[in-house]
Computed example of a mutant assay.
Amino acid sequence: MAPVLGPTLAWSLLNAVAGTVQLQRINVKLGVLIRQIETLGFRQEAEVMGRLAMSINVLDELLHEYGHTGNLNKLATSRLAEAEKEVGSIYERNKILIEDFSCRVDATLDSHGKTGAEQAAAMLNENAHMAVQDMQIFTALIAARNRVTQLQIYHDLIEQPSFADKRLDIASTRIDDHKKIIERCNTVESLQSHARQCINQMNWFQRKLFDRSTVRKVEEAASYAYPRQSSMPVIDVTPSFCFWQDEQGTIQARLAMQD
Results as ranks from 00 to 15, higher is better:
L30V: 02
L80K: 08
T238P: 02
M202A: 01
L191Y: 00
Q197N: 10
S102F: 05
G249F: 02
Q160F: 04
S213Y: 11
K217F: 03
D177Y: 09
I34R: 12
E159K: 11
K85S: 09
L63C: 10
A164D: 04
K74F: 10
L30R: 07
W244H: 00
C242M: 12
A83E: 05
S55W: 07
A81G: 06
V21M: 12
M1G: 05
E92N: 07
L59K: 02
P7E: 04
E47Q: 14
T149L: 12
L5A: 05
G116Q: 02
R216L: 14
E92F: 11
D60H: 08
H155D: 13
V17P: 00
E47R: 12
L40K: 12
I235F: 01
R104M: 06
P227T: 11
Q252F: 04
Q197S: 10
L59Q: 05
W204H: 10
R25N: 14
E183Q: 13
E189D: 15
G249E: 03
I96V: 15
Q192M: 04
G113A: 03
A2L: 15
A122M: 10
Q258F: 09
K179R: 13
V28C: 08
E61W: 07
L151G: 02
K208I: 04
A76R: 08
E84R: 08
A81C: 09
P233F: 10
T187Q: 08
E189R: 13
L209F: 07
T69N: 12
K217A: 13
E118C: 09
Q136L: 09
T173N: 11
E159A: 14
R212E: 00
R25C: 13
A171K: 03
R228N: 02
I90R: 00
Q133K: 13
N15C: 14
N27A: 14
F163M: 14
A222D: 00
T69A: 14
Y154K: 06
E61I: 09
Q197H: 09
N73K: 03
R147P: 00
I26Q: 07
I90T: 04
Y226L: 08
D169I: 13
R254Q: 04
L255V: 15
E183T: 03
V32L: 07
A131L: 14
N27G: 05
G113R: 02
T238D: 00
V105Q: 01
T8F: 12
L9G: 03
Q201G: 12
R212S: 00
L255D: 02
